[in-house]
Measured scan of single mutants.
Amino acid sequence: MKVMIRKTATGHSAYVAKKDLEELIVEMENPALWGGKVTLANGWQLELPAMAADTPLPITVEARKL
Rank of each mutant, 00 (worst) to 15 (best):
M28L: 07
L24H: 11
L24I: 13
T60K: 04
A14G: 03
N42W: 05
N42R: 00
W34P: 05
E27V: 09
A17Q: 12
R64A: 08
V38H: 01
A32P: 05
L21Y: 08
K7S: 08
L46Q: 01
P58C: 06
R6F: 13
M1S: 04
V38M: 01
S13Q: 09
G35Q: 05
E29L: 05
K65D: 12
T10Y: 13
Q45R: 11
P31H: 09
A53K: 10
L48D: 01
V61M: 02
L40D: 00
M51K: 06
K19C: 15
G35A: 05
K7A: 10
T55Q: 07
T39E: 06
P56H: 09
I59W: 07
E29S: 09
E23M: 14
K65Q: 13
K7W: 08
V26Q: 04
T8E: 06
L48N: 00
G43W: 03
L33W: 05
T60N: 07
G35N: 06
P56V: 11
V3E: 01
L24G: 08
L24W: 08
E22W: 13
L66E: 04
V38K: 00
L66S: 08
G11I: 03
V26A: 05
M28Y: 12
T8Q: 07
N30W: 08
A9F: 09
L66W: 09
P31F: 08
A14M: 13
A63C: 11
K65N: 12
K7Y: 09
E22S: 09
Y15C: 08
Y15S: 09
M28D: 00
S13P: 02
M4L: 12
L66V: 14
W44D: 06
H12K: 05
M1N: 05
L21N: 07
K19A: 15
L48T: 01
A52R: 10
A52I: 06
Q45T: 13
H12T: 08
T55C: 05
L46S: 01
I59K: 08
N30F: 12
A50E: 12
N42S: 07
A32V: 10
R64W: 11
Y15Q: 09
I25T: 00
I59T: 07
T8A: 08
E22V: 09
N30K: 11
A53R: 09
K37N: 09
M1H: 06
L66C: 09
A52G: 09
L24C: 12
M4V: 14
K65A: 12
A14H: 05
P58I: 05
T8K: 07
I5N: 02
